[in-house]
């Protein structure tokens, strides 16, 4: 740990701390405010009396949201896409990172494949051809459209390959001496030594799947197949009157649209807040590894 030798003079130090605290508050305020709104009464929300604490505490908005079958269904689809999509992301990442982490002597086609994958990050066919290919492969309106087309996160492959390469060669050589093949080296030598980066990447792909909204929005024709973020996009951000049922319309007369929006937003944030402590423990190391290696 490197600590600056000279401490800041008293007032400069105070100012430094005050500005940082203010930045922290600026980041926390919108989130805390949303939480407070979601637990406030409709009239308190409408009259602008809510700041960072619920006014006229009520769970009405949450009851309304959690009784809405469309919301629950999309929540389930999002959970499913994380549970299926994230492990698949990790499997493919590992299977590609290993060959790319070999030396050229060991894998003569290494550079070819490295560029083969890297090129897809640098250049793409664009939105429309991508959409057409997904349609041609019969995935439109299918759950697998949310999983298959993005199953290989190339950026994560780069991070993991670099991480594999930083593991001392002697360990692999010793294993190879004992007759271990590539599969054994990957699964018995490299992966057990790589769990911090694997944890980081797993959390990254989990968050990415949870947060994806655009694919659901354009690849699903029927809103009952939307994952949660696509559902919120059409209900909260870009309300489409066709999405509202008569029950919604009747209930919205009674309770505030504003508090239910806040409740839905907050529920969608909960899974992120749950993994965040684990995420934070690992991502700093992961980001350093990727951004300023060597």
């Amino acid at each position: 740990m490197n600590e600056r030798i000279v401490k800041l003079p008293f007032f400069e130090n105070l100012l430094n701390l005050a500005v940082l605290a203010l930045l922290g508050l600026l980041c926390a305020f919108p989130i805390v405010h949303t939480l407070a709104l979601s637990f406030s009464s409709a009239s308190a929300a409408a009259s602008g009396r809510v700041a960072i604490w619920p006014v006229e505490f009520t769970t009405q908005a949450y009851q309304f949201v959690l009784e809405n079958p469309a919301f629950i269904k999309s929540f389930g689809i999002s959970i499913a896409r994380v549970l299926v999509g994230a492990p698949l992301n990790m499997l493919l990442t590992i299977l590609v990172a290993y060959p790319l982490s070999r030396s050229k002597a060991e894998f003569r086609a290494r550079d070819f494949f490295a560029w083969f994958f890297l090129l897809t990050v640098l250049f793409s066919g664009g939105l429309i051809p991508w959409y057409m290919v997904i349609r041609q492969t019969g995935l439109i309106d299918k759950f697998w459209a949310l999983i298959i087309p993005g199953a290989l996160p190339v950026f994560n492959v780069i991070l993991l390959a670099n991480s594999f390469r930083s593991i001392p060669k002697e360990l692999e050589e010793a294993a190879a001496m004992d007759g271990a093949g590539h599969w054994t080296i990957l699964f018995r030598v490299l992966l057990p030594l790589s769990w911090p980066i694997l944890a980081t990447l797993t959390l990254f792909v989990t968050v990415a799947h949870w947060n994806s909204w655009f694919d659901g929005l354009i690849l699903m024709n029927s809103p009952d197949k939307y994952p949660l973020q696509s559902y919120l996009q059409t209900v909260v951000i870009n309300p489409d009157p066709r999405m509202l049922t008569e029950r919604d319309l009747a209930l919205l007369q009674l309770i505030s649209n504003r508090t239910t929006r806040a409740a839905q937003i907050f529920i969608a944030m909960v899974p992120i807040l749950l993994v965040y402590p684990f995420l934070q423990r690992y991502f700093t190391a992961g980001v350093k590894l990727g951004a300023i290696k060597g």
Partner: peptide, 21 residues
């Protein structure tokens, strides 16, 4: 063998759209 599934995937969902240009 390790690369095959990813190569197929990338050919279909990254390179085929480039042809779609």
């Amino acid at each position: 063998v390790m690369l095959t599934p990813a190569v197929v995937l990338v050919l279909v969902y990254a390179y085929a759209p480039m042809v779609g240009i």
